[in-house]
Simulated assay, not measured.
Amino acid sequence: MDEKDTNRLEAFSDGVFAVAITLLVLDIKFSPFKANGLPKDDALMWGEILRQGPTLFAFITSFFTIGIMWLNHHRIFKHIKRYDTTLLFLNILLLMIIVFIPVPTSLLAQYIIYPDYHTAAILYAITFLAMATCFNLIWRYASYNGRLLGKNVDMHVINRISRQYAFGPLLYLIGIAIALFNTPLSVVFSFLLAIFFAFSEISLRRNNLQTPIESDTVSK
C-alpha cells in the first residue's frame, strides 16, 4: 500500500476528537439572572461559579484525557504507515468510545459531590478503561512483527512505546476499583492519570528525539 494511505484515516480521527472535546463544554451553564429576571450581583455570581466547580472539574479531567489520547493517536500514526480492514475497525471502535466520553462526563458532573453514589463514577472509569484497551489493541495489532509500520523503524522505540501503553488499562482498572467506594476520589485519580500520561508522553517524545527513526517518520 502507499505510505500515505493513513492520511484520510488520521484526518477523520482528528475530526472526531475535535467534536468530542468540544461537546464536553456544553454542560457548563451559568444562570446570570435571578428568578425575577434581575441580574445577579457579584457575590451571587461567584456563588454560581463555585456551584459549577464539580462540572468544571469533570470537564477538565475529560478534556485532558481526550487531549492526551489525541496526542498518542497522532504519535502512533507517525509509525503506522499502512492500514487494513481490521485496523480501520479498531480505529472506528476507539472513536466511538471517544465521542461517548461527554455522556458519562455529564452524568458524573451531577454525582461527583455524592461519595455514596457510585454508578456515574463506575461508568466514567469503565469508559476510560475501554478507551485505553481499544487504543492498545490498535497499537499492538499494527506493530505486531512490524505488520503495518513503516520501513526501517527502530524496534527499540516500538518496544518502548508498547511497554508504556501496557500500563494504561491496568491503571484504569484501579480507577474502577476506587469508583466502587468513593466517587470524588475516583475522579481525582482519573485527573492524576491524565497528568501522568501527559508527562509520560513528553518523556517518550524526548527519548524518541534522541533515538533517530526513519527519516519520513521524523519529518511528518
Rank of each mutant, 00 (worst) to 15 (best):
A58Q: 00
N182R: 12
F181N: 03
Y114N: 13
A132V: 05
V16M: 07
T86R: 15
S186N: 07
N72A: 08
A35P: 03
Y124N: 05
N207D: 12
A198S: 07
D42L: 13
L185Y: 00
Q110A: 11
M155W: 09
N145Y: 07
R82C: 02
G67P: 06
T127G: 08
L185V: 13
R147P: 04
F196E: 04
N159G: 13
D2P: 04
L149R: 02
D5W: 10
D27Q: 14
E10C: 10
Y111H: 14
N72P: 07
M69G: 15
R163I: 10
D116Q: 15
F59H: 00
R160G: 13
L129R: 02
L170V: 14
S219W: 05
A43F: 05
T127H: 00
V188A: 10
G175D: 07
D84Q: 07
F30K: 03
T85I: 12
G37C: 08
L38F: 12
T133A: 11
A109C: 03
V157D: 09
Q210L: 14
L193F: 05
V157Q: 06
L192Y: 06
K220T: 09
L129M: 12
I126G: 02
R140E: 13
F30C: 03
I80Y: 08
Y83F: 11
L88N: 10
E48S: 08
D216R: 15
A194H: 04
L137Y: 06
L95Y: 02
A11Q: 09
G37W: 09
S143H: 00
W46K: 12
F199I: 04
